[in-house]
Design a protein around this nucleic acid. Structure first.
Lengths: 231, 231
DNA sequence: AGATCTATATTGTCTATACAATAAATGATA
DNA sequence: TATCATTTATTGTATAGACAATATAGATCT
């Protein structure tokens, strides 16, 4: 039932992933694959183009198609929507707003690197009554003026934004840090506890929409990135 | 000079990303796009299939093509090869091996979740003479017997593996932790310093190759993931 | 109203062919 | 030998047409 071009793609893909074809090796030319699979060149081309789009091979006119060097470690990182993830796992999710203020970006955490007038929120993500992540967020009022009217009761500011504002570019920086005393109090942990710090900034067509810094208790939360069939 | 199918793809993509077309909106049918762009259906199909492959739209026979719900936060995470990255930034890279032992996996850090006989290495990544990441790695001897003969002098075990063994599946877990006393000593920092813990496990066709746990000093290292044009 | 069949719109795949673009290989020239 | 032009192999793009698969919408029958 699977389409032929798909079969060809998977066939060659497996030859590469299994190590049977090593980086630098040359693939058969389209004409030969046509013969091998008994199909038209368009079909072969579709299969190999897909591999090229996925970065598994490089193609060059006249030269041929070659197995690409291993993509080192580019992989898909699944940064979940907290509310969604927590509810999935059967826990009760709540967001508690600690602070909400319209102010100039200069006033908020400088690590967010946002400018202009913003809505600044500070809150805590709670799973089954237990604080679980601390969040400080700035949303540009010039980019998203309507957020001023938003109520963050069922939804956290992040969920609200996801539902209302599409983004086109994003950047996420992950590091480790020790919680400050104020954050420790909000999370109900000891001062200086090791935390995962996730700073995420999004744009829409070059215009900065929001920047957020989330602190996850180190042992309670782990980001997992997967690549390949093990998923 | 850009191909027509590429122009069509970008055209529609920008309509989606700009917010002009919202999730759930229906795209014109291929026949209409044919007319709009004055080309054959195959060309339109190629453009829209690319958008579908990228997850921007969903296609259903008879129903049509629809703008997909925002892909939450799936993005490309660039987990660099440490040696490469440090050298890029003009610093001098060195790997110092602290421990090397053939043993059963049971003996090494249980968080690595590997089994059988392994080569266990512990070492420190050094940039410009300053310790910078602590690494504990187990490499399966059944999967990679030849690593027993490897010398980790110019290359760290990770770099050696990258050069010699292709992998097909990988999983990376990122969390925050406080360094143990032994690790603190190796890194030359105070006990309990907050660190980024990166556990990475790779397979080849289902066979577990290696598992590694790297500890990065929290303030000295940040993983950055980017998505979209801002890169 | 509800179930079942039928028609139809839309995407999915494939073919055979054509010409364009590119870079490597080859040959000609200085 | 070095440089430049020419050929040639290979991929890139496009076309028109055909038939398949499938989900919706409409029609028919309980």
């Amino acid at each position: 039932m699977t389409a032929l071009h798909e079969r060809i793609r998977r066939d060659i893909e497996s030859r590469i992933l299994s190590g049977e074809m090593m980086p630098g090796d040359r693939l058969p030319i389209e004409h030969d694959l046509m013969a091998e699979y008994g199909c038209s060149r368009m079909t072969v081309n579709k299969a190999i183009s897909a591999l090229a789009a996925a970065g598994l091979v490089n193609r060059k006119r006249k030269a041929g198609t070659f197995v690409a060097a291993p993509k080192a470690h580019a992989m898909v990182l699944d940064i979940p929507d907290l509310a969604h993830e927590i509810q999935e796992s059967g826990q009760k999710y709540r967001y508690r707003l600690l602070h909400r203020e319209i102010c100039n970006a200069g006033k908020v955490d400088s690590s967010l690197e946002i400018e202009g007038d913003v809505l600044w929120t500070v809150g805590v993500h709670i799973a089954d009554g237990k604080p679980f992540a601390h969040e400080s967020r700035a949303v540009s009022l010039t980019a998203v003026p309507e957020i001023d009217d938003a109520v963050f009761d069922p939804d956290s500011p992040g969920t609200w934004l996801l539902k209302h504002v599409p983004w086109t570019e994003a950047e996420t920086a992950i590091s480790a840090t020790a919680v400050s005393d104020r954050e420790a109090r909000a999370l109900g942990v000891a001062d200086n506890t090791a935390c995962l710090s996730l700073i995420r900034r999004t744009w829409r067509s070059g215009e900065h929409i929001t920047a957020v810094r989330q602190l996850f208790l180190g042992d309670s939360y782990t980001l997992v990135a997967r690549f390949g069939a093990s998923a």
